[in-house]
């Protein structure tokens, strides 16, 4: 079985995700619409169908696919944040997901958010204080670190969030468009940090629409299409196939 394989850090085995969302009914089609009543439907969304994947320690894997293809659902499942319908997800150690809108407490300053994030990850106060200067300088937001995070631009928010998430590197780091809004300098530094995590035998899985970013950071790529794995292999091959399809 998969769990005996020593190098695997993530094993996804026959994963299905179906969920129900409450959606407003179609006003025109609903007979009650005229009386101001809206029917609420339970809409079934089949996000992932029979996904089988294995990521090894020290691998940096890019995940590509169209919007709504199930990339984020896959990452949320690996992070244990999304309920699955069938199948298994095994993770060695902690899997941390970093998304786009990640201010922990928008009304507190970036500085407070760093402390809060470190403590919530289970660091002690002394450990947080030790890492604080390095984390703040890595984020590169300067004096803005003292301003409430709700006043940050999306790029600054992403910088602080990435710095928090990597202040104690998890065994598996999942990035969901986490670098998308950062500027060139920040992206370069982040990719440098991802590479150093790879050296420490961590696993990084990144979802991105920036194919150049994936080409630079990843050796392997997975193409998700309508909830299924369409292609899985060396990054260059998968990206070529993906681009040729979107171009054609």
């Amino acid at each position: 079985m998969a769990e005996t394989e020593t190098d695997a850090s993530v094993v996804v085995d026959g994963l299905h995700v179906k969920y129900h969302v409450r959606a407003e009914g179609n006003h025109l089609a609903s007979p009650l619409a005229g009386r101001g009543l809206r029917r609420r439907h339970l809409l079934e969304v089949h996000a992932l169908r029979d996904i089988n994947l294995r990521f090894d320690t020290g691998e940096v894997v890019g995940v590509v696919g169209a919007n709504g293809s199930g990339k984020s659902s896959l990452l949320r499942c690996i992070a244990g944040l999304q309920a699955r319908t069938a199948g298994r997800v095994l993770v060695r150690g902690e899997a941390r997901l970093l998304g786009v809108q990640a201010a922990l407490k928008p009304r507190l300053s970036g500085y407070h958010n760093v402390i809060l994030g470190g403590l919530a990850m289970g660091l002690s106060r002394t450990e947080v204080d030790e890492r604080l200067p390095e984390v703040v300088s890595f984020s590169g937001v300067g004096d803005a670190i003292w301003r409430p995070m709700e006043t940050y631009s999306s790029g600054m928010r992403a910088r602080v969030a990435f710095s928090i998430a990597t202040m104690r590197s998890p065994e598996v780091l999942l990035l969901d468009e986490a670098l998308a809004v950062g500027d060139r300098a920040f992206r370069d530094r982040s990719i440098g940090r991802i590479a150093s995590m790879q050296d420490q035998a961590r696993t990084v899985v990144m979802v991105s629409h920036n194919l150049d970013e994936i080409r630079r950071a990843c050796s392997r790529a997975v193409w998700i299409d309508e909830g299924c794995v369409r292609l899985d292999g060396p990054a260059s091959e998968v990206l070529d196939a993906y681009t040729s399809l979107s171009a054609g």
Binding site: S9, I78, G80, R92, G122, E171
Partner: peptide, 23 residues
């Protein structure tokens, strides 16, 4: 290194308590 574990398993009560105490 830690062992492979189901990402969705609710942690055992002991580990959950330890996690709370650690916070």
């Amino acid at each position: 290194p830690p062992v492979l574990r189901d990402a969705h398993d609710t942690q055992q009560l002991g580990r959950y308590f330890a996690g709370l105490w650690g916070r």
